[in-house]
């Protein structure tokens, strides 16, 4: 009759490292897929307003962003709302330059579909937003998107 015998002491089998390359490759692929190459660091306080009728912005490559809000580091830049283009604060006169630079980056046939997403803080006054909108009209970047979150719009007030 067969008998199972316990030979010697019980030993924990070591964790096999054979699968390590797989995991590493997997993570590599994961990061390669998910990383966005250049993400600007937002230098303004940004709480975009709530809205209910929002639509998703498709095709990231056609979207340029303009940030408006109170600077994060108030001791350096003060409390007055500022416009941020790319990685730096800019005056509104620079917007036209910024738009043409963004246009250059796109395919020629996709340029008319360019959208400017205005990421504006809830508490900013309309004056600066209107200025930016006028500049965008001058630059004929007419498709805009007021960035907002899903939520009750009456909370904005």
């Amino acid at each position: 009759m067969a008998r199972f015998q316990r030979s010697g002491k019980k030993k924990m089998p070591g964790i096999s490292t054979a699968s390590l390359p797989d995991i590493v490759f997997m993570l590599l692929f994961f990061f390669m897929v998910t990383t966005v190459m250049k993400e600007v660091t937002v230098m303004v306080r940004l709480r975009v307003p709530y809205a209910t009728e929002i639509r998703k912005l498709e095709n990231r490559s056609l979207v340029s962003y303009i940030y408006i809000g109170q600077p994060r580091s108030t001791e350096v830049y003060g409390t007055y709302p500022r416009i941020q283009l790319n990685d730096a604060f800019a005056s509104k006169e620079r917007i036209r330059e910024f738009i043409s630079a963004e246009r250059e980056k796109m395919d020629e046939n996709e340029r008319p579909k360019m959208t400017v997403s205005l990421k504006v803080d809830n508490n900013v006054e309309m004056g600066i937003v209107t200025d930016v909108k006028q500049e965008l009209r001058k630059a004929s970047a007419l498709k805009i998107n007021y960035s907002s979150r899903q939520g009750d719009p009456f909370d904005n007030l």
């Binding site: 994961f30 975009v48 498709k143 998107n145 007021y146």
Partner: peptide
Amino acid sequence: FLVTTTMNTDSGLSRQLPPM
């Protein structure tokens, strides 16, 4: 991971500005 990562999609109210 591919399914669960949200690529922080942007959303908002789209508008068309009138030309100058």
